[in-house]
Computed example of a mutant assay.
Amino acid sequence: MTTLQELDTPTALIDTRRMQRNIERMQERVKTLGVRFRPHVKTTKCLPVVRAQIAAGAQGITVSTLKEAEEFFDAGIADILYAVGMVPGKLPQALALRQRGCDLKIIADNVAAAREIGSFGKTHGSVFEVWIEIDTDGHRSGIKPEEEALLEVARVLQESGMRLGGVMTHAGSSYDYDNHADLLAISERERAGAVRAAQRLLEAGLPCPVTSIGSTPTALTAEHLDGVTELRAGVYVLFDLVMRNVGVCTVDDIALSVLTTVIGHQEEKGWAIVDAGWMAMSRDRGTQKQKHDFGFGQVCTEDGAVLEGYILSGANQEHGILSRSGETDRSIAERFPIGTRLRILPNHACATGAQHPGYQAMRPDGNTETWPRFYGW
């Protein structure tokens, strides 16, 4: 164990008390909505975090890379949804996981991919479970619920001997809203679109055992999930400033921060220079288009108290620029002397976590321990 004061900087910190509170909040929410919960683990890519999610009641996990699937399967987690469109070059990697006993589900949103999956599966004597991705908000990928392609993809998969596992969607555009009424509308659009796609498959005599939806904002806003069987969400476990601006958490819920040290000043500019640049925070400027722009992050004291008005306003590779938003603080050097240790709350927890080989998990007693995370595809 190491104390916070003994840690080098920059270092990614997870406040385990906040993390556990976030996990319990989401799990209670899912229980109220009456569906299964399959968390998206790309946010942390960290086994101790995922074990805490499963201990709270999560059933299966969602991953964004096959590397994640391999790592978590090796750790004993078998029920895995790979929620990125499958391409032919990754089918051998997926097959190897299934042959080892992993209950891996893959997705497709076009006929070409479905044909490749079916052909590869038949050639290798394997039956892949495939979910069809549905586009419910025009955010990124998927087939619209009423498109003919939905039935075409399903039939190609069935005719090639693959198992049609269901439909899934992700309301990524929910990140673009910041009030309850809009979030409620997008959450209902997500639910209704996925349920309609499932209904069309069933009406055509095709199987659809799973209807899976999810994003952190819609999961925390939806009033009901009639027709849905499972919910997915990821960033809720740590939260971040984008989610604070969306309105589904407060800064007091954000469990991830980056510990940093003041290394210099530009007093005439009102700058303090810290050793957390974009290599520690990431280049993600997700709050830039929102009503409250936090620059590269919100500045806090070493013990986590928010310093209102102070943000990481700029970032080079290893240098961060700390300043007061909207004004020049000429007393910046007096306020933050050389050696002052601070914490920065991130815009995007997934992106900031990805900059670090591991987290320092801060326990309520003030001690920390290292939680590794992993990289790769």
Rank of each mutant, 00 (worst) to 15 (best):
T3M: 14
T3F: 14
D15A: 12
M19H: 11
T32K: 14
G34P: 13
R36E: 15
F37C: 06
T43I: 09
C46Q: 01
L47S: 08
A52C: 06
A56H: 04
G57F: 02
T62D: 08
V63D: 05
E71C: 12
A75C: 08
G76W: 05
G76H: 07
M86N: 01
G89W: 00
P92T: 00
Q93W: 11
Q93Y: 14
A96S: 15
L97A: 10
C102I: 10
D103G: 08
I107Q: 02
I107Y: 03
A108G: 06
A114R: 03
R115S: 01
R115P: 01
F120P: 11
G121K: 06
K122S: 13
T123C: 12
H124L: 06
I132V: 12
I132Q: 13
H139W: 03
I143E: 04
P145K: 01
L151W: 07
L151P: 10
S160T: 15
G161F: 04
R163L: 14
L164T: 10
G165F: 02
V167S: 01
T169D: 01
H170R: 06
G172V: 08
Y175L: 09
L184Q: 15
A185P: 08
E190Q: 00
A194N: 01
A198I: 04
Q199H: 13
L202G: 13
E203K: 15
T211E: 03
T216K: 06
E223Y: 07
H224T: 15
H224Q: 15
H224C: 13
L225W: 04
T229C: 02
V235D: 15
Y236S: 13
F239S: 15
L241M: 08
L241S: 12
V246F: 10
G247Q: 06
C249G: 09
T250F: 09
I254V: 15
S257T: 10
T260M: 07
H265G: 11
E267T: 02
E267Q: 02
E268F: 05
W271M: 03
V274D: 04
W278P: 05
A280I: 03
A280Q: 07
A280F: 04
D284Q: 12
V299F: 01
V306K: 10
E308L: 11
L312K: 02
A315S: 14
R330P: 14
S331K: 15
E334P: 12
R335L: 13
P337S: 09
G339P: 04
I344P: 07
T352C: 14
A354P: 04
Y359L: 09
E369T: 09
T370F: 13
